[in-house]
Design a protein around this nucleic acid. Sequence first.
DNA 1: ACATGCATGTTACTTGCGGTAACCGCAGTC
DNA 2: GACTGCGGTTACCGCAAGTAACATGCATGT
Lengths: 213, 213
Amino acid sequence: MDTTQRTEQQRSADRRRRELLEAADRVVLRDGPQASMNAIAAEAGITKPILYRHFGDKGGLYAALAKRHTDALLDSLRAALDAPAERRERVESTLDTYLAAIEARPQVYRFLMHPAEGSSGDQEFDVGKHSAPLLRRMGEELAQVIEERLDLGPGSQQLARVWGHGIVGMMHAAGDWWLGERPCSRAELVRSLADLLWGRLAAAGDRIGGPGF
Amino acid sequence: MDTTQRTEQQRSADRRRRELLEAADRVVLRDGPQASMNAIAAEAGITKPILYRHFGDKGGLYAALAKRHTDALLDSLRAALDAPAERRERVESTLDTYLAAIEARPQVYRFLMHPAEGSSGDQEFDVGKHSAPLLRRMGEELAQVIEERLDLGPGSQQLARVWGHGIVGMMHAAGDWWLGERPCSRAELVRSLADLLWGRLAAAGDRIGGPGF
DNA sequence: ACATGCATGTTACTTGCGGTAACCGCAGTC
DNA sequence: GACTGCGGTTACCGCAAGTAACATGCATGT
């Protein structure tokens, strides 16, 4: 077993895999998250069984596809999050980066958020891993940054994780809604969300009548 | 056409419909969101075409089912949200109500959040209505309450809507994560989220090194 | 040179689900 | 007693996931 040969085959297989992923990418971009394996295979110029050999099942293919985009997006977000700037500015820049991404390629976004569940494997109802992996990863990532950068006193790690997932969820839901209705510009949305995080909810005055009764 | 006769038939049909929904409910509770129409029909003691006569297609059935649970949950939330108490208390109580609900019946929760998309009807990729109707409705509801109760200055309506969807998303994502990992008690989670909304993120001090560099 | 093995590719199939067409039987009605 | 409307069934279509079995090319071991 010559190692160079081995790596040669390996490299070839990897190249093929990448080609297949690119084809799948094109199809998903065109047909949305419910693209059929047949369609993807056709786009790649081959037939189904090859896809299954490479990725196991549809879930595997989708996971591989999602990982690429997720990694790319996370890189952008990390860059915004780690920039040498004031906290508020960093927060706004991160929000804007995310929103710009989903605005630029909504199909990819939708694919990442709704990775065509089901796939016939979810027999027993496992409570974990409901939401898309992207959301979880973003949440954990943000939690880590928060915990590294901020001084939150005792229980900081737990608090940071809650906040990480919470803030990501806020960004996601607001972004999803905004993408559908486009009620304002991106900049306004960013500003409103940052204001929310900056405690304007608590600081706002009551309207006539007050909170009681 | 006797009207009493008409209503008699109507009532009968409605009763049947309700029975079918209850059966569907049981199955979804058991098998998760990907329960098959066959299974639901079997549980109801009948066969598929009847389901289709009553609900049109799977989407229709699921929509009807979702509406019931969504309405019920929204009622609870409204009660917590409109209680005569301090704002922070109301917020915490609302968060807790939501989390208690998803904790008590995670299957229902999952069903509401991932209403088994696809259904063969989504040919063209329409960007709108990505997330579950429940999220949207909660967001709008909360937005309305915020706008009614708080004095946010100019542009208040838009701000309220952004916040409504944002806060709901925060609650949802944090709740989803919490439900999967159970890293802390419900009360702690509620407190942490309320703290986030109360601006503790902005108020926290920097850790060694500061924000710049 | 030849058989061997292995990766790549194909056709053709099974299974299972959403959805539908056509038929069945029983009330009540004229 | 034939006619009609409604609750119900069987049997089917189309389509997508996933698989089995077969074909082919290319490097290797002897």
